Computed example of a mutant assay.
Amino acid sequence: MRVTQKGQVTIPKDLRDALGIGAGTDVEFERNGDTIVVRKTNVENGRGRQLVERLRGRGDVAMTTDEIMGLTRGS
């Protein structure tokens, strides 16, 4: 298997099938010495969830959601 110029590799179909990895599945990588382990990411702890948790409570606008939506909709 060869790494592309962008650092990409193709996970063989038999491994994807065995792990239930399809298009859009989040995976994570773990390094253990010279070995890299690839596993499906638990959707509960995926990238989107991590981003939300990192941003939670950082807003400093003293507006309600309805006021913000009114501004974005131009009403």
Rank of each mutant, 00 (worst) to 15 (best):
M1C: 13
M1K: 11
R2M: 11
R2L: 14
V3S: 01
T4E: 04
K6M: 06
G7E: 03
G7K: 05
G7H: 01
Q8G: 02
Q8I: 10
V9Y: 05
I11E: 02
I11N: 05
I11P: 03
I11A: 06
P12A: 11
P12H: 09
K13A: 13
L15I: 14
L15R: 07
L15V: 13
L15H: 04
R16L: 07
R16I: 02
D17R: 11
D17A: 15
D17M: 06
D17T: 15
G20L: 08
I21M: 09
G22T: 05
G22P: 00
A23Y: 03
A23C: 01
A23L: 07
G24T: 02
G24L: 05
T25L: 00
D26T: 04
D26C: 07
V27R: 00
E28H: 01
E28M: 04
F29T: 05
F29E: 02
E30H: 06
E30A: 10
R31K: 07
R31Q: 11
N32R: 06
G33C: 11
T35D: 08
I36N: 03
I36P: 02
V37A: 09
V37Y: 12
V38F: 02
R39K: 08
K40T: 04
K40M: 08
K40N: 00
K40A: 06
T41N: 07
T41H: 02
N42T: 07
V43S: 12
V43G: 12
V43C: 02
E44P: 00
E44G: 01
E44R: 09
G46T: 02
G46E: 00
G46F: 03
G46W: 01
G46M: 03
G46K: 04
G46D: 12
G46S: 15
R47K: 08
G48F: 12
R49E: 10
R49A: 15
R49S: 14
L51R: 12
E53Y: 05
E53F: 01
E53H: 05
R54P: 00
R56T: 05
R56E: 09
R56L: 10
R58T: 10
G59M: 11
G59F: 04
G59C: 06
V61G: 08
V61M: 14
M63A: 12
T64D: 03
T65P: 10
T65F: 12
D66W: 10
E67N: 08
E67T: 13
I68A: 14
I68Q: 07
I68S: 00
M69R: 15
M69I: 15
G70W: 10
L71C: 09
T72I: 11
R73L: 15
R73F: 14
G74M: 06
S75T: 14
S75P: 06
